[in-house]
């Protein structure tokens, strides 16, 4: 029981991070019908931006308040990663819009390789540790030597994710931008006939996805305390799996998919073997897709794959 509760907490924390990244995959897919394979690497770049900013602020500028440093890093990482997302769309995807179907896909994979190699060269392949931040937590209950804890980091991660998801839901469902965004998803040409600047809407969608990935990147850094250039790949693939599992194109699907993948991964590690945790996550995906080809919350009529 204790192990169960502890894994539940760990799984939800990890799943929150996957969910935040998955939203970027699902939104971009929804609007341009293409998987942005560079999205996982945008996430990885954001972890490095966050790390560098942290070191700058704490070591060199001597800001000692962790909360202040965290806030500054959060805002700056979001801004810089947004710029990344914007540039990727402008340089790699927009010029190919309207060309044959596979062209942007190839371009996406190219960008992905470029980003991870760029960081590898610029930062070195060794792992980058971060200064310790926000240690400690609550002990929920303890019995025969096993304590169930909820760390401050986990609270922060789940709180930030919840607030962000609420804000994001509001943006997409209730604001003119969100309406324009959904209109472009459903019928781009019609949206243009109504005066919507479709290119701008697509750009902003990439930027929003990147901003969420940036937050996920910072939280990931905070949680694990270490990043490496290949870290973009595995969480990126898992978040993509989460998006497909939840039903690509569906925002709630991305969040639910993220949580499920996070839970499977931690429970499998705890009860079976840690080596096969990724196999477990991907097997579940395969099984779900066999019985529900459009994912848990996906629309049955999604035709643009």
């Amino acid at each position: 029981m204790d192990v169960f509760v502890q894994q539940l907490i760990n799984g939800l924390t990890l799943g929150s991070i996957y969910g935040l990244i998955a939203i970027g995959y699902t939104m971009v897919f929804g609007i341009i019908g293409m998987v942005n394979f560079a999205h996982g690497d945008v996430f990885m770049v954001s972890t490095f931006i966050a790390l560098i900013l942290f070191l700058l602020l704490t070591a060199w500028l001597g800001i000692s308040s962790v909360a202040l440093a965290f806030l500054l890093v959060l805002v700056a990482t979001m801004a810089l990663t947004a710029l990344w997302g914007f540039a990727v769309e402008r340089i790699a995807y927009r010029p190919l819009r309207g060309s044959f179907r596979l062209a942007p896909l190839i371009s996406a994979i190219g960008v992905s390789i470029f980003l991870s190699n760029f960081v590898q060269v610029a930062q070195g392949a060794r792992n980058k540790p971060t200064p310790p931040m926000l240690e400690g937590g609550f002990t929920l209950f303890a019995s025969d030597g096993y304590a169930v804890t909820l760390s401050y980091k986990q609270i922060l991660i789940m709180a930030v994710t919840s607030v962000l998801l609420l804000g994001f839901w509001y943006l997409v469902q209730k604001t003119p931008f969100g309406r324009a965004q959904r209109a472009c998803e459903q019928d781009r040409k019609m949206a243009a006939l109504l005066g919507i600047d479709v290119d701008r809407t697509i750009s902003l969608t990439f930027v929003l996805g990147a901003v969420l990935a940036a937050v996920a990147g910072l939280l990931y850094l905070l949680y694990y305390g270490v990043v490496s250039f290949s870290d973009g790949f595995v969480p990126g693939v898992k978040a993509f799996t989460a998006a497909v599992l939840g039903g690509i194109g569906s925002l709630p699907g991305a969040v639910i998919g993220g949580l499920i993948i996070g839970l499977i991964e931690t429970f499998w590690s705890a009860y079976f073997s840690i080596e096969y945790k990724d196999v477990a996550a991907f097997s579940i995906l395969a099984i779900v897709l066999i019985f529900m080809p459009s994912g848990l919350l996906g629309r049955a009529e999604v035709e643009k794959v």
Binding site: R179, A180, R182, D187, K189, L194, G195
Partner: peptide, 28 residues
């Protein structure tokens, strides 16, 4: 403004949201 061939209403939006989309360039 055009009501195009095939109507092209946004199928997964409410009637109200479709009308709001029509007014998109007036910012409400």
């Amino acid at each position: 403004a055009q009501s195009p061939e095939g109507r092209r209403v946004f199928p997964r939006m409410s009637v109200l949201e479709n009308l709001q989309m029509g007014a998109a360039l007036h910012d409400g």
